[in-house]
Design a protein around this nucleic acid. Structure first.
Lengths: 185, 185
DNA sequence: GTAGTTAGGAACTGATTGGTTTCTAATTTA
DNA sequence: TAAATTAGAAACCAATCAGTTCCTAACTAC
């Protein structure tokens, strides 16, 4: 006894993810957000509550889509060396030329939003585990502690890379660097 | 034949630097900014023009004060190993528990402000040169190209470290990692 | 058909935004 | 003393902000 929802919640959140990813939280106003979600104000507030809630859901979708796809690619890689598998993380694709949503959320939103802070940490941990998995399958000579350290360093390199990318800095030869870091030179 | 300015421009910009550093550009409104600069609206607009101009000046002051102090410390360090000299960069002091202003500006402002983008790149380059200086005095066995690569990696590690720090993540043993990265283990 | 829920659109709220103007009083140099 | 410039406070501006309300129309299940 009710008219069914016409828009697709997942698709709407996809649009929200994209616009928050590109513009950040504060810089995205309601009209921007509604346009990206293809929703009107009424439907928006009835379905999601408020802007902050949608931002969190957008983070969740980034986790489910982008991060998961990233992890799957790391896992599926069959190159014999770890560097080759990790390189895509250090190639700014056209689709992601606005940086990494996790990094953006950490810097802009996390400091005064504990829920977002925790979510970004969880996502960073997932990435780290993915990197660790790549190392475990290959550089078997390393001690587990050393391997964890390397994964953490690559994760930090990744975030630093993403942050600097947002200033438009030209990117350099990361393959050689990662290779040397992992002793695969 | 004119009443002299009573407030200290440098001190006012210092206050602006602190509040922008802590809160970011968008999250800092005029009342916040005026309070931090200890200025009234009238004096503010007459002396500086607008909020955006003050943000840029705040970045410049960060460069002159914080970055310069950082570089001076790197240069003055007399420890025999590079790691010991670089470690302070990876220790979040109380004074800077809101991260690194350069990193914040890169992520929040640089994407749609070319002047800020260029300034952050210049500041990052200064940091890199400082790191490079530390390496040049010590690890003389390295080739120049390898040394530049290492400096760039440490710079990226630093920015990644700062970004992740904003999510409140507990910090781990960076001394061991840097030491191993530089072959000083 | 009717109850219940949705969509879409528009109007509206109260608060806040960055920025301007206008006033008086103070302080300087010539 | 007179011209010039500042400080400080307040009122004011138009625009924008997130969020609410109200309306009609559409749709589904009972």
């Amino acid at each position: 006894m009710a008219r069914p929802r016409e828009f697709d919640i997942a698709k709407a959140l996809d649009g929200a993810m994209r616009v928050f990813w590109r513009q950040g939280y504060k810089a995205t106003n309601l009209p921007d957000l509604l346009c990206a979600m293809k929703l009107t104000r009424g439907s928006f507030y009835k379905a999601f509550g408020d802007k902050g809630a949608v931002y969190y859901h957008a983070l969740e979708r980034y986790d489910e889509e982008v991060v998961s796809a990233n992890l799957a690619a790391l896992k599926a890689c069959d190159a014999p060396d770890a560097t080759t598998c990790l390189m895509p993380m250090f190639t700014l694709s056209d689709a992601a030329d606005h940086g990494c949503f996790i990094c953006n959320a950490m810097v802009e939103v996390a400091p005064d939003n504990p829920k977002v802070a925790q979510k970004t940490q969880e996502m960073a941990d997932r990435l780290k585990q993915g990197i660790l998995g790549v190392l475990e399958v290959r550089d078997v000579g390393l001690s587990p502690a050393h391997r964890t350290d390397l994964a953490e360093m690559i994760l930090h390199l990744y975030f630093g890379f993403q942050a600097m990318g947002k200033s438009g800095r030209a990117q350099d030869d990361w393959e050689g660097r990662i290779r040397r870091l992992l002793g695969e030179g």
